[in-house]
Design a protein around this nucleic acid. Sequence first.
DNA 1: CCTCGCTCCCAAAGCGCTTTGGATATCCTG
DNA 2: CAGGATATCCAAAGCGCTTTGGGAGCGAGG
Lengths: 342, 342
Amino acid sequence: MNLKELSEKLGLSQTTVSRALNGYPEVSEATREKVQLFAKQHNYSPNTRAKGLATGRSHAIGHVIPIANRHEVVNPIFGDFIAGAGEVYAANNFEMVLSIVEDGNEEKVYRAFKTRGTVDGVILHGPRINDERIPLLQEIGLPFVVHGRASGVETDYSWLDVNNRRAFTRATEFLIDLGHRRIGLINGLEDMDFAHRRRLGYEDGLKARGLSIDSFIMRSYEMTESNGYTAAGEMLDSEAPPTAILVSSIITALGTRRAIEDRGLKMGRDVSVVTYDDTLSYLANGIDVPIFTATRSSVRDAGRQLSNLLLAKISDPSRPPDHILLEAELTVGQSTGPAPAT
Amino acid sequence: MNLKELSEKLGLSQTTVSRALNGYPEVSEATREKVQLFAKQHNYSPNTRAKGLATGRSHAIGHVIPIANRHEVVNPIFGDFIAGAGEVYAANNFEMVLSIVEDGNEEKVYRAFKTRGTVDGVILHGPRINDERIPLLQEIGLPFVVHGRASGVETDYSWLDVNNRRAFTRATEFLIDLGHRRIGLINGLEDMDFAHRRRLGYEDGLKARGLSIDSFIMRSYEMTESNGYTAAGEMLDSEAPPTAILVSSIITALGTRRAIEDRGLKMGRDVSVVTYDDTLSYLANGIDVPIFTATRSSVRDAGRQLSNLLLAKISDPSRPPDHILLEAELTVGQSTGPAPAT
DNA sequence: CCTCGCTCCCAAAGCGCTTTGGATATCCTG
DNA sequence: CAGGATATCCAAAGCGCTTTGGGAGCGAGG
């Protein structure tokens, strides 16, 4: 069932039917109702491609997920982010198109998005320091918003970010207040902007209290469980093990806990752990009492807010860039306690 | 830059240019090369919608992810699955479109996919027992393949599944061989077909050795860390705690381990654990020696195989249904050992 | 020399929609 | 009751591509 058939059966022109269905005022309420009812009965819905061809818009948003071929890790927070964004798209009749692409091939994909008209805009994930994708998208002229920020990028663009630096400063200070003097950091890859900021926040916290920075207990890895295990293990096995560790992801924190317990130590008593928690749906941080003391912010909610931002930008291209900075909350769980007496 | 401009600049007709680019034989090699070179130089790529309109195909595959609004859990294996499928789509110039949809609204989405022509086919995720989506898709006439199977569905359809039943039988027997007589099960939701089969496999294993089935130590939940923790905790705190537990997901297994260690017990000595492992990239089961003894099969690889199947089916609709049954391998790790002496 | 059969190319129709630029009928004003 | 506004509808062009149905041009066979 297409527009032509529909209009023939209704005895109206395609123009009128189209207008009736799309809410244009040039059609009487009586006919509009008749048309809408009829369309619903024959469950007509316009062909996306034809509509897109005519309007020049695709009603779709692109998400490009780079897979580092070295380690092939799929970002586990991605699922929750798109769950949030997906809600918004569904409510606005937008489609979400996903491109899995090898690190470095992203430019090709973005250009193809533009020239082929696949999507009306993109959400940029995992911005790195000096991320070249931002100027690229600006050059291409594809509307975009960024989940995070990119230090070193001069131009203005829309973003939503968590105040990672402050979150990690607060977490560090919290541990210092508990008496910890030797605090380790197990960070994400520090070419990622969020990890970079977290490190700065951690250093801020140490410096503010006059503690020194020791690169031995400052690690940076892809955020997997096993990396958390290895990193924490190495720190704990060293001559001057930390009494507290700051971790960048709840997944890494699981590995950290395993390393602690493997050594017969107790988390929260012998070693304190504070993690960043994206509130992933399948990895809730405990039920009543949080397992981990954590700085947390919902990545799903970020998905919701950011996709709304992009839709607004698409419908009004002249809209100036938006900036949303969320503060992470610091919630105390069972993984932290006073520094053990020496 | 579109076809028209391109052909004008080349001094050829649109027909010829189109044919040259799409590899039709009615054009000389000389002109084909000239055209292709020129197109590359001006980085021309055809408008997706226009091409789709003309051919009647979208070159896109749909993935519908239902979110149960009760618990809002995003399936964590999804990320790795689409990473595998995404590779295949990228290699075949297909797009992946994702729909996040509230449980129950899926019919609407599938119908829209068909009538709007959004996608050429779909991959069905998380089949349930008697899943109504399968007859629905057949009725609609949208090509599809299923990740898993649906017990109770009579008609034939293409699927790829792991032999969940045998995997769990083997795991159960493995534990029995180690001397365990009281073996718990922490399963996924048993309206999901894979969980149903796993339970059957578990029961098969017990029965074959003459062990009785106790529903108290047979649990079924959404596969989250905290559910694993709670379930294992309840079992361990009971009067007749199991000496071994079979777990349906590595995420749940993490919670199980936490419950064990919280009680001052040691996994692999006091309580053995065997888990199903989807080999998620960010939750690798140990580095050298596996943490968990596991029946495992790569969900990413499943994504690759299944998407290939669907593409084949789309390009040849008369192709009879394919069935791929993968066997999970049982790998021994540190989480299992002989049953403790009573 | 004419015709047949290739090879290589083209004009134009068509995919299903939106939108421009009217046309027709109806309704008010003065 | 004329004239202009207003409400309601329509024909046709156009979005960028593919594909049908030819049509030159050219060497070969009779």
